[in-house]
Design a protein around this nucleic acid. Sequence first.
DNA 1: TACGTCAATCAAAAACAATCAAAAGCAGTC
DNA 2: GACTGCTTTTGATTGTTTTTGATTGACGTA
Lengths: 269, 269
Amino acid sequence: MHEKERHRIILSAVQEKPVVTVQELVDLTDASEATIRRDIAALHVQKRLRRVRGGAEAISPPAFVGLAGRTFSVNETINAAQKRAIAREAVELCKDGEPIIINGGTTTFQMVHFLINRRMPIFTNSFPIAEHLLKHSKNTVMLSGGTIYREQNIILSPFENDVTRNFYARRMFMGAQGLGPLGLMEGDPLLIQAEQKLIDQADELVVLVDSSKFRQRSSLILCGLSRIATVITDEGIEDREAAMLESAGVTLVVASKGATAREESSLQA
Amino acid sequence: MHEKERHRIILSAVQEKPVVTVQELVDLTDASEATIRRDIAALHVQKRLRRVRGGAEAISPPAFVGLAGRTFSVNETINAAQKRAIAREAVELCKDGEPIIINGGTTTFQMVHFLINRRMPIFTNSFPIAEHLLKHSKNTVMLSGGTIYREQNIILSPFENDVTRNFYARRMFMGAQGLGPLGLMEGDPLLIQAEQKLIDQADELVVLVDSSKFRQRSSLILCGLSRIATVITDEGIEDREAAMLESAGVTLVVASKGATAREESSLQA
DNA sequence: TACGTCAATCAAAAACAATCAAAAGCAGTC
DNA sequence: GACTGCTTTTGATTGTTTTTGATTGACGTA
């Protein structure tokens, strides 16, 4: 990773929330603490951000109103490190130039950081994701049309005939509220709707869930395990849960918080 | 591979991603590292790209992280005061609760400031307008789907069947590059497309143009004067031009820069 | 004291510049 | 076309500079 790329990532991360810690940036960039400190110092003298104890903050006035409703921003701080590690693995699956679909959510949002220095067509129903990618990357961004729901931070139209149907990708990335033997579960009917619209527009469904989601149940089932191609989760997954996925023919990727080490187990039927 | 070919490849690669490394270019061109370095150095002195440690980046101004393409940001500063006054009159036409459509543009963008304390469903194809309204107002925001064009700052889909067709409003607000006896003129084919999609979704077409636009001509005609319900402009409009509008049955609103003083002349046929 | 942040230092790695010989292109001549 | 002499471009090698990551110790705080 080169200096410029790191700088871009740092600047983008700083926009996302009021303060970013050095440690978070280390996770994001795979650089050492010393390097990040040097980068922050450099960007500070360039007045591209403000350096604060522990990390950095955006230079812009505190008027960070943030699009996010409370749900979004609260979720965002929970398990942030895991989510980032998971998101990194997700982006690692992508090849430059290959179109992808990203469903809105806090975990999938983390993908934007790793997409900053990449270039591919990205279709999403998430306003924040589109916004961030537009401002900080050169990716081609495509948006679904409809009403913007502030709470869920997604764009949804009640109509069948929207552009969503005209976009196709090999992979679609999405989060979920729960993942059990019965399949993928979601809590919010609105999210179910949004996801169902997108789910058929991609061959492979890649699900991003931190391991706590395996113990989380919910009332609404989106689809069965067989529809899922890949699950990316963190090291907290239990053997029993991994076995469940394997027996359903799901490729499992475990994101280790530290390095980019990857442990896969694929048992395609 | 010849020098020129390499240069083309390098320049194209640099456009695609924020930064390209020397190594990537070596892979791309099959040339040696030394040659790529020489090429980058040459293109650098030609100011066709910027040379950075590790590779090269596009010369374009990545300095301003703003969403706006150059066209947008340059436009934005021209006649800002007039545009504001015009936009204020436009918003004054709106009633709370009554849905409106706002087509993207620098003049229409100014409407957001006056919409902050209002509350109505707003449909737009402009990403910046949607962003601003979302962050700073409580209006219901609806967005058209499709690809986000950075330069024009609009969202456009090449398909007929998008949500646009499902939204209706009494009034649609739009800017233009020129306004003459032949009708409404636009310079960019992309904008024409976007506007044509929206134009049929509202009864009344309200056109926001500063008075300089009456002397501006352009190659693409969007629609005739008869389609226009109202034109809002500034005090710079000449009698001849006002007469032209009146004879076409267009309601003319002249926004005085100072107060909300309004001078109307309505000659509906 | 234990902990986290940070600056300073230093050795390793990466990027870079300079150099030079080989290769390729380009006239002109036969 | 084929050959020659000349110039330009290229790639490998070298040595130099910059960047990086690990280590250490200072400083403040819980």
